[in-house]
Amino acid sequence: MKTNPLRSVLTHLLLLTGAFISAMPFLWMVTTSLKPAGVLYQAPLLIPTYFEWSNYVEAWKAAPFPRFFLNSAIMTIGITLGQTLFSAMAGYAFARLRFPGRDVLFFLILGTMMIPFPVTLIPSFLIIADLGWLDTYQALIVPRVVSAFAIFLFRQFFLSIPQELEEAALIDGANRVVIFARIILPLSTPVMAASAIFSFLFAWNDFLWPLIVTNSTEMRPIQVGLAFFQGQYGIFWTLLMAATVLATIPAILAFLVAQQRFIEGITSSGLKG
């Protein structure tokens, strides 16, 4: 089908406006990160005209950032892998298997998303303290390798995969585990990519839990590092924004990698037809 040129221009105009609004705060962040502190409150706010790269150097030196990045990376990879695998498994069970208590269990799991996290802080901390896990990677990763949100996401996706694909395999005598690994997972790259990016962002941006279960600077992740610039007595905006931009880069890269998976589908999803 040919596209109408007028329609294409309008589409782009619409998309550009939305994209600009979406990106504006981020632009501001970058611009602020490049300002000398003395002109913080001055326009321009969006397009950088100052290039105070030393803000980045200063921010980088203000806290042990290499270590923070390493901790965040370990924590994020652990959580993302765990959430993707375990949630796909659980999502599959909820979408495809009938077993006693299925719906009750599913609602219980959904229910965990509805309890505001802060009120469970103390009991959660007590468990970690009893396990002797304070100040360890286990404490940062294990309690969060399962995500109700991701389970729900996978369940909804699996519900939309035609069941005929599996039935043939079931008749051929394949068991559910094999079907899951050989048929379902390969079909699920787009949703896995979506789930992984959300897990990544969750883990990368998590602040309160890592702070509560770690006591030493060596175990802190990047978000706690950012708090160094949001002091009790004032915020070092230029440095905070420089550090925030640095801390955001991995998340952007993660999105760009994941997005490959979304694009791929449009040309190669012949299988599903």
């Binding site: 375990f86 498994m89 965990t112 468990i127 294990v142 309690p143």
Partner: peptide, 18 residues
């Protein structure tokens, strides 16, 4: 089998605190 990790982790770190 599919739900074991979910039940163990959520049970310990979510249900109990809740």
């Amino acid at each position: 089998f599919f739900l074991l990790p979910t039940v163990v982790i959520l049970g310990t770190f979510n249900f109990y605190p809740a």
